[in-house]
Amino acid sequence: MRQFSYSRAETVSDAVAALASNPEAQLLAGGTNLVDLMKYNVTRPGAIVDINRLPLKEIEDLPNGGLRIGALASNSAVAYDPRVQERYPLLSSAVLAGASAQLRNAATTGGNILQRTRCYYFYDPSTPCNKREPGSGCGAIGGVNRIQAILGASDKCIAVHPSDMCVALAALDAVVEVEGPDGKRDIPFTEFHRLPGDRPESDNTMARGEMVTAIRLEGNHFASHYTYLKLRDRLSYAFALVSVAAAMEVSSDGAIVDLRVALGGVAHKPWRDKLAEAEFAGQPANEETFRQVARRLLAGAKGQGENDFKIPLAERSIIRALKQAASGRPQDQSVKAIQ
């Protein structure tokens, strides 16, 4: 770890100013990802600005039936909030599918969406990694790539985003509220994370000096037809090989009114294809449709060798998740039989 200076921000503008004035500064919230990366010398900030005292812990009702989740609300607070459980059970379920109870108690909402990839090469400073050290190359291409991306990768980076919560937030069309030197702005969730392209060092579309202050969720009609299905190497406390956040609104005659499918573990960002989803409005909510959805979503999928299996696994997972959502029987994260 590099030694650093430490300060506590008392207001959001303090934090933004501290971030803007020092290119080596990073914000500390729950610490579950940042401290981990600092100990591995993957991230070596010269200054830490502790934002835990900022008044961003609240989960507030919005007039339209939505919720604003403060950036410092813990993952546990979000997952177990009765309003989240009632209105956004998909979000609650996805959060509970991730990490461990201890980590969820410490990790924050803002920190979760800013967490870095678990790519082995990113985590190992003695190997090349364009994300960690732009221009150094990608160790994962041609290397151990079982966990890497099948969608949206580039020849610079094939890493995947590790979050479960973000997959649900992408499906739910959340909005990220950020604040920076130039004031506040909203970023639609699906535009918050980016694909690696030529700049894999950049995980998201925030500008330098901006910080996440809240996640906003609008009212929705997905509370009865949703699921979060996560496939991983052990039955808990492991990152996703493939995960699916699915939500739908179904008409009384069994047709899809509104469809949402987001994928985790397959791309540099939670993967959603809104155009593809729209094509299935009006289609019957049955297995054949779901198969077409899966194929449509995975049309451009490309494996790296060891991770080729993710393509059929994702296809089958999407179909199963949509069946779960359509039938109103979401995956229970404590029950290990896949419903």
Partner: peptide, 26 residues
């Protein structure tokens, strides 16, 4: 020392957390 095992779990204000990932000053 990286939040991967839970051996360092303590209760902070009644909540279980991994003490290895908490800077004491925070």
């Amino acid at each position: 020392d990286h939040g991967q095992c839970g051996a360092c779990t303590v209760l902070v204000d009644g909540q279980r957390v991994n003490s290895c990932l908490k800077l004491a000053v925070s």
